[in-house]
Amino acid sequence: MKHEMGRSDLLRRIQEVEFVALDINLYLDTHPDNMEALMDYNKYVYELDQLKRTYEMNYGPLLNFGFSPSQYPWRWIEEPWPWEI
């Protein structure tokens, strides 16, 4: 996976992959024995984790209150915040 995307493109991809993972999650709630869906879910969860790590390493935390680590100095106060982009 390439990580040369800009900040806005990276956030957009995170939103897309979160949507897909959530959608498959809901499907699996009613089809728990669907191995192919489970494999797709795990693939997207892995991609989402990598995208979030890349974003946070380059632009700071996506979430506050213990969900995202911060580099020094404390980066949560840096603007713009993810929802402002």
Rank of each mutant, 00 (worst) to 15 (best):
Tyr72Ser: 11
Leu22Val: 11
His3Lys: 05
Val45Arg: 14
Asp9Ile: 05
Asn64Asp: 15
Leu10Gly: 04
His3Thr: 03
Arg12Asn: 02
Ile85Phe: 10
Glu4Thr: 10
Asp33Cys: 01
Pro32Glu: 00
Arg53Ser: 07
Arg53Trp: 08
Pro32Val: 00
Gln71Arg: 15
Asp40Met: 15
Pro82Met: 01
Leu38Lys: 04
Asp23Val: 01
Tyr46Asn: 12
Arg7Thr: 04
Glu84Asp: 02
Leu48Met: 01
Leu28Met: 04
Arg7Glu: 06
Arg7Val: 04
Glu47Arg: 10
Met1Trp: 11
Asp49Lys: 07
Asp29Gln: 15
Asn58Lys: 06
Asn34Trp: 08
Ser68Arg: 03
Leu26Ile: 00
Arg53Ile: 01
Met5Arg: 13
Gly66Ala: 03
Met1Pro: 07
Gln15Arg: 13
Pro61Gly: 10
Leu10Asn: 08
Leu26Asp: 02
Phe65Met: 07
Trp74Met: 10
Glu18Asn: 05
Asn42Ser: 07
Asp9Arg: 06
Asn64Lys: 15
Tyr72Leu: 12
Gln50Leu: 14
Ala37Thr: 03
Ser68Thr: 07
Leu51Ala: 11
Lys43Gln: 10
Pro80Val: 10
Glu16Tyr: 14
Val17Asn: 03
Glu79Thr: 07
Met35Lys: 04
Met39Phe: 07
Asn42Thr: 10
Met57Val: 00
Phe65Gln: 12
Ser68Tyr: 08
Glu18Asp: 05
Phe65Glu: 13
Tyr44Ser: 04
Glu36Arg: 06
Leu38Val: 08
Leu62Val: 02
Met5Phe: 15
Glu79Met: 11
Met1Tyr: 06
Thr30Gln: 07
Asp49Trp: 02
Ala21Asp: 08
Tyr59Asp: 06
Ile77Thr: 09
Trp74Tyr: 12
Pro61Gln: 03
Val45Ser: 09
Leu11Thr: 00
Ala37Gln: 05
Gln71Trp: 12
Gln50Arg: 15
Lys43Phe: 03
Pro82Ala: 01
His31Cys: 04
Gly66Tyr: 12
Met39Glu: 11
Met57Gln: 10
Gln15Pro: 06
Trp76Cys: 12
Arg7Trp: 02
Tyr59Glu: 13
Thr30Ile: 09
